[in-house]
Design a protein around this nucleic acid. Structure first.
Length: 559
RNA sequence: GCGCCCGUAGCUCAGCUGGAUAGAGCAACGGACUUCUAAUCCGUAGGUCACAGGUUCGACUCCUGUCGGGCGCACCA
């Protein structure tokens, strides 16, 4: 990358400067930035090296900057057309056009790989997301986590990590029992037995549908069974159906998991004669991190930085969700990952510290685990918020939204905001196929390019890097610079676990293309200029496509 | 009471590990289609970055506090 070349060059001139002046800064940590200034009149890149260095060696920034430029100019300078000192002591670089044009050819030759990197090479990441109870359909609240998790996986993979996408199925515990109970009640009602769904049970309509399906398969055979037995059958039956529906919806959203990890299985499977819970218990016991109180077993989270202790085994003898969760994370660690990323809804934030304290207890530190909290989504329809209460069964499902606005728009809208800010999903805007809708804006740029390339092909012109020096417009150089920033955007997005950066970048890039397109003809009378411009727009198309694919959004050839 | 996130243009939001004159889209107003896709483009207008201190050569960004908004603080999952 250009930025790295510049950094190296500047760094070596700093070294020379220090040598020449007999200054030793080996004891001081010194690092500087190479960045793209917001204002183009400050050049293509700029550095604060002189500012930082002057501060460390108690010298005047502008003097230091002047010396650095002198040194940079004295060597063989292949990068810079012009260097100048600005403001308090920034050095602004104007690059030679050839540097950019060479970059353009790199985009072309790397194609789909342009933007990818090897930053994560050799590192295994487990990314866990959605992980909804299989007690109902995925609702819209799950959708943001799903989209973010999936896009992040793509970005991390693109950055060289080995990524496993995992869905943790909460198939043990109270909620599943309630599901079984609820289905059984609906089933019995089909035989005119007068009972009601338990108060905290599942009231929604799909429960009745499942009961009907159950009846059509098993007739009245459950009625003669013991309550326990019948409930288990109902539970397993509903579980199968609902998990499949969840998988189907995710697939419709373009999301495929590598692993479906069952809580129940983890708890019950024995390794070396003990199950996962017992194994965790053993470790915690050995560290004296558990204690009994009022008939329950507690984890001493306060020993590991949390501000309260938590129950592992309730006084009724059953394990808590937290206990199973520790076992689950212990298993994740044993599977040999370097990083564990959990994507959770913001309402679970209080669980972060308790999980981290538990991970510290069993693994000595919690560095391995990162929790990305996703703020809530509000669904807005006709300017009003649509209530998404789960209890009333009136929540909006992911399925409904996908059906109404389609996969591309749904994903883009869920990804276009920073995860730590609330998101308003405007249904009316999402449905609109116009310039207001940023998804189409980006896709349109891609399709437009396709159309020009097709037209060019028909008239015997094809993109070529042979006459790139014909690209002499300032806006052409600007687009090229934008294209060359893409790998950096991907890096940032991966490092900060922030897919929305890609979305913003794509909007900017599409905008630059549209502006360029409106002002200039691609297909001109001048053959050399035409082939060069075709080359440029085909590079734009490549980057648009690569970016869209990181978001899991299609790049249509025609619109 | 404690904890997490947020507060930037009328609205929805960007602003990378502190950098130069704080940006985009929408909405408003005025323009551009006999010309490669007008799902596009151009122009105008819009700001005390919630507030108050602090750190720094430099703060929307970091720290402290205050005020607002959202979400959590279970022997539920």
């Amino acid at each position: 990358m250009i930025k790295e070349q510049i950094k190296e060059t500047v760094n070596s001139s700093v070294g020379k400067y220090l040598d020449e002046n007999g200054i030793d800064i080996s004891g001081i940590d010194f690092d500087f930035e190479i960045e793209i200034p917001k204002n183009i009149k400050f050049g293509d890149y700029s550095t604060n090296a002189a500012l930082i260095l002057a501060n460390k060696i108690k010298s005047k920034p502008r003097d230091v900057a002047e010396s650095l430029i002198e040194i940079l100019n004295s060597g063989d300078n292949t990068l810079f057309k012009k260097m100048e000192i600005a403001g308090p002591g920034f050095i602004n670089f104007h690059l030679k056009e050839a540097v950019y044009l060479k970059g353009l050819m790199e985009i072309d030759s790397k194609g789909k790989q342009w933007g990818s990197s090897k930053i994560g090479e050799g590192q295994k990441i487990l990314i866990e997301f959605v992980s909804a109870n299989p007690t109902g359909y995925l609702h819209f609240g799950h959708a943001r986590n799903a989209a973010v998790g999936d896009s992040l996986s793509r970005i991390l993979k693109y950055s060289g990590y080995e990524v496993t996408k995992e869905f943790y199925i909460n198939d043990a515990g109270r909620q599943m029992d309630l599901l079984g109970e609820s289905v059984l009640v609906r089933y019995k009602q089909l035989f005119d037995i007068d009972i009601d769904i338990p108060e905290d049970g599942y009231q929604a309509e799909y429960i009745a549908d499942i009961a009907k399906e159950l009846k059509s398969q098993k007739d009245d055979s459950l009625l003669s069974l013991a309550e326990d037995e019948a409930q288990t059958i109902c539970k397993d039956f509903a579980y199968e159906i609902l998990l499949n529906e969840i998988k189907k919806d995710l697939l419709d959203a373009g999301i495929e998991f590598d692993e479906w990890y069952s809580e129940k299985k983890n708890i019950h499977t024995k390794k070396n004669g003990v199950n996962a819970l017992e194994q965790v218990r053993g470790i915690l016991d050995s560290k004296s991190s558990v204690f009994e109180d009022e008939g329950a077993l507690w984890f001493k989270a306060t020993d590991y930085g949390d501000n309260q202790d938590w129950v592992l085994i309730k006084s009724d003898g059953l394990p808590t969700y937290f206990y199973a969760d520790i076992a689950y994370h212990s298993d994740k660690i044993q599977r040999g990952y370097n990083r564990l990323i959990n994507i959770w809804g913001a309402d679970h934030h209080s669980h972060v510290s308790r999980l981290k304290s538990a991970v510290t207890a069993i693994n000595n530190d919690d560095k391995i685990i990162e929790v990305l909290l996703i703020q809530f989504v509000r669904l807005i329809k006709d300017g009003k918020e649509v209530s998404m209460s789960k209890r009333s069964g009136s929540f909006v499902t992911l399925r409904e939204v996908l059906k109404e606005v389609g996969r591309d728009v749904t994903r883009y809208f869920l990804l276009m905001r920073s995860t730590d800010s609330h998101l308003d999903f405007d249904m009316n805007l999402a449905k609109e196929q116009s310039s207001d809708n940023p998804v189409y804006y980006i896709q349109y740029a891609h399709a437009r390019i396709e159309s020009v390339l097709t037209r060019a092909d028909e008239s015997g012109h094809s993109p070529s890097p042979e006459n790139l020096e014909s690209l002499e417009l300032q806006e052409e150089m600007q687009v090229v610079k934008k294209l060359l920033q893409f790998p950096e955007i991907v890096d940032q997005s991966a490092a900060s676990l922030a897919p929305h950066r890609i979305a913003f970048y794509l909007q900017d890039l599409a905008s630059e293309f549209h502006v360029y397109y409106n002002r200039n003809k691609i297909l001109t009378e001048n053959n050399e200029l035409t082939t060069a411009r075709l080359y440029l727009i085909s590079c734009i198309q490549t980057v648009l496509r690569n970016g869209l694919s990181l978001l899991g959004i299609s790049a249509p050839r025609r619109m």
